[in-house]
Design a protein around this nucleic acid. Structure first.
Lengths: 190, 190, 190, 190
DNA sequence: CATGAATGAGAGTTCATTCAT
DNA sequence: GATGAATGAACTCTCATTCAT
């Protein structure tokens, strides 16, 4: 009997190789042959485990999203006060885990592809809605009663923009600066 | 009798066609043949006027940047007070001119490509530095003395993030909301 | 305790699956994986029992030929007069046994492959010679003395053509019509 | 301006190369790269002029059919009596023009593919109907009144079978033998 | 005995580029 | 100044075969 239980291992290997390949060559120059070489596997394996390149790319974005949510959940678990919860959210997005070069370039690439793929857009919408929902919850706990939705949206805009700029300027984001800013934003709305 | 002075006309035609093609098919599926067809010209013309696809893409990003600066200059010219200058900056980035679907997808695509092209990165840096410099100038005029650099960076982050989110959510950005937010951000720092 | 004597069972299974696969997808799109799936077995089994795809295809043609000869022998055994023997031959080729959809498409596919495989050609020659020899024998018994070889060849041509046309037109061959025709052909030569 | 009017030339070149490639390697091993090499052109040219391999194969069968009809028309034009017309038909199918090795293998290959392609089947049906219609017409002129349809079908079967057997046995068909046979078949029906 | 994971050669197709016109 | 026919490298995907289990 052949080796069994390889599927989850191979799928993880290939997703990780996809992220690294996007980071090295860019989305447009990410080929199955480069992904396979990065994974140390043969080209045929991608069709074998994912059916095709598109499915692998989609699974990769789903993986990025899942990792983000897992990190967020981990960070929130250790937070008890609303303030800590807010910090946990900022820390999750701007912290080291989500700001490894590989992860960051892949995220950016996928965002640029979102307008051209319904499936990617759906995945992106899930991320967006959860983040806003979490933020609104925290804001209410912090005593914001007015225009909670708008403030949540503005904070999300700030955090995403802060992340984007740190990516494009090769700088590691400094969560503490962002944290202070977000607190100011909230204070103005109390 | 050969037509003369076609170069600027053809180059503009092709750059505009490139933006529209990226908007329609995405960066990864933008081919010279599609660009040429969109422009109503032949494929050969791209090598003729740009030397190759990469040069055309680079020229296109340069064009986007140039347009943004021209719009900014136009908007600033009509502003007399520092408050008006700040509004002009927000309006330039979030206003209708820079938020046509075509322009927006192209910007996003180029941002995702920045990490893989020194030339694109250089162009992106110019945009960034000018925007920050303009912002710092306005902030000082508005009486901010403390941590001007940081605030300028945070405002830029917010505006970019606000733009990015409106792009990804298919919504037209509402500059007035952003304007109020930026004013709050500044007020907190006075 | 290993199962023994599986070889003939597996070989028969795979040959039958090959015939069905050719019938479903055509010779050019008959893959080992499809054959294996049709047989309800794994891909590896084909190399195990046949050494490779080509050998399996060859064995399949040999099987078709063998079945035809077996049917012919069966039918001839029940025939006592020369007339009955002639009918038995026609019935064998045009009768229901050899005109199941699966068998028919496979035969056609193999005929088209004959010019490209010495082994297939050899198999095809054996079929041809036996059929002609049988026919000549019957013709002589029926009293044909003149140009027996030619007449046998012409009858064979007619029967093969009749079969071919019924295959291509999705019609089940009607042996009675062919039988009458062959009798006419023979009568003309007496 | 580039060379113009190449389309009919290139299409003819590629169709001829397809016939030769099928003859050399068989239908299943006819690849676009082999066709292109045979034509002395590059692989890309096939997509350029035919859109894909399937279209080229279809166009090739259509070409074979068209050639047959053209030969038939040519031969019929020189025939004045019904007897001559009958001979012209036999001569067309069994004569040298349609029995070049290349043409013959391609025909056989396409016949084997007919059950798997609606388009090929349609083309094959056209051939079949025209041949039968021509035959019936001649039969009536020759005074056959009884079961004309059946006789036409039987004659067609004989001619096709005769052709098929000469193909498979590497022998050049001898139309005179077939001619005599067909006359006998008709005489039996008068 | 039998599996199916893994391979890599080769398939069809696409594409940026060249160049004769 | 402009064309688009032609190229061939590179792409994604398929497939027969191998082999550890």
């Amino acid at each position: 009997m052949p080796k069994v239980g390889m599927q989850p291992i191979r799928r993880a290997q290939l997703i990780e190789a996809t992220i690294r390949t996007i980071n090295k060559y860019g989305y447009a120059d990410t080929t199955v042959s480069r992904i396979a070489r990065t994974a140390g596997l043969s080209v045929g394996i991608i069709s074998h485990y994912f059916g095709g390149k598109d499915s692998l790319l989609e699974a990769t974005m789903q993986h990025l999203l899942f990792s983000l949510h897992r990190d967020l959940a981990d960070n929130l678990r250790e937070a008890s006060t609303p303030e800590e919860r807010l910090d946990a959210m900022i820390e999750t997005i701007l912290g080291p885990e989500q700001n490894q070069s590989e992860v960051v370039t892949a995220w950016l690439a996928f965002w640029a592809q979102v307008p051209f793929s319904d499936r990617l857009e759906r995945i992106q919408n899930i991320y967006n809605r959860r983040l806003l929902s979490n933020t609104r919850h925290v804001l209410k706990q912090l005593g914001v009663t007015n225009r909670v939705d708008t403030l949540a949206e503005l904070i999300a805009a700030f955090i995403d923009g802060y992340w984007l700029r740190s990516v494009l300027s090769h700088q590691v984001a400094d969560p503490s600066e962002a944290r202070a800013m977000v607190r100011d934003m909230i204070r103005s709305h109390l």
